[in-house]
Design a protein around this nucleic acid. Structure first.
Lengths: 111, 111
DNA sequence: TCCTATACATAGGTGAACTAGGGTTCCGAA
DNA sequence: TTCGGAACCCTAGTTCACCTATGTATAGGA
């Protein structure tokens, strides 16, 4: 059945999109996605942190240690200009694919 | 950049949807998807045939050797009742996820 | 005769996401 | 006061879907 917490291939998109509003720490990113989607999409920590490492390596985000409102050390991630550009590309690629899949689904609908 | 011929996790959905219209052989499935999506989505044979094997094993499709209009031996795949039911579940799951991702994208749009 | 399109299939590699853990600090309740 | 839970960070190992590359074979046109 494959439970699947999210659609494969969309994790980077979700993270970058979430960071577009404001810099956020890892835990906050996961909470944000869960909250906005009413828990339809949940990002496991074991998926999230490796993904953030990849994004750091590629220069799409940068990280900075700060203190949270709850007086805790946390690593805040922020979009870089390159990341913002990358996000734009991923969004349009994603929308293109969604449209294509929609055509397949619609095509099967008609007789 | 990741070329990505299709969105991971959507291959079964695309195959089953394509078979909903009528039974079809593997090559025809790939052609159909490519044609309907204007080549946005392309299914590699190395992805397609293993996927069909999985679908056979799970009983969602059945296969039958026939002769094509071009006088060739080909294996025609058809949806089973279980496959039709599975397709329904996958479609609704997919739509739910699309809606959720849409909310994340929209949420970032507003200030 | 040779090339292209049609057609099926598998082996091997890759890489993203999941499972399953390990660790720290802050705070409230018992 | 200690104990548990929530807020945080992170990695090792596994799995599995998909891709790359390759091999086979036949029909039909140039």
């Amino acid at each position: 059945m494959s439970k699947a917490d999210l659609l494969p291939g969309t994790l980077d998109l979700l993270i970058l999109t979430t960071l577009k509003r404001a810099p956020l720490h890892g835990y906050g990113i996961a909470q944000s996605i869960k909250r906005v989607t009413d828990e339809v999409l949940t990002v496991e920590e074991g998926s999230l942190y490796p993904a953030l490492q990849r994004l750091l390596l590629q220069g799409w985000v940068k990280a900075e240690w700060k203190v949270t409102e709850t007086n805790r050390r946390a690593r805040y991630y922020a979009l870089t200009p390159a990341g913002r550009k990358q996000l734009g590309m991923e969004v349009s690629k994603f929308e293109q694919m969604m449209a294509a899949i929609g055509r397949v689904l619609a095509d099967a609908g008609e007789a």
